[in-house]
Amino acid sequence: MADKWELAIDDITPGLLLGADLFDEFGIVLCREGEPLTNSLVMELRQGGIKKVTVKKAKMADIDITQPAIDHFAEFDHHVDKCLSMVMHHDEVQQISGIIKKVNRSRAQSSDMGLKN
C-alpha cells in the first residue's frame, strides 16, 4: 500500500487514479484499478454508497486533470433532470423540478454543506 492512499470519497480530487478494483456490496466490479476518477464517476460512487476509495499516490502533475472542480449544484440539477426526464413534458413537473433545485440550493447555502443527499 506504500504507493497508495485510502481516501474518503469526499476528499477525492478528480483526476486521481483508482488504486484498486472497486466492488459494490454484491461483489460486482464497479471500476478497475488505474481508471481515472472523474467528476461523474465520483458522483456515481457517492450515490452508490461508496465511502472510501483507494487511489494511487501520484504527483498531481503526473495526472491529466481535464475536469473542472466538482459543482455540487450542477450535479444535483443533472440528477433531478435525469430522474424526471420521462415526465418532464408535464408543466407541473417542470415547476416541481425548478422548486426542488431551488430548495436544494437554499438548504445547501444555509447549512453551507453543498449537495443535500
Binding site: Q47, F76, H79, V80, K82, C83, L84, S85, M86, V87, H90, E92, V93, I96, S97, I100, N104, K116, N117
Partner: peptide, 21 residues
C-alpha cells in the same frame, strides 16, 4: 417522486416513469 428527485435513500429504481396531474 419528490424523494427520488432529491435522491434521498434508494428504493432500487431511478427514473420516475409516471406523473399524474
Amino acid at each position: 417522486i419528490v424523494a427520488h428527485a432529491f435522491a434521498i435513500g434508494d428504493s432500487a429504481n431511478f427514473y420516475i416513469s409516471d406523473f399524474y396531474p
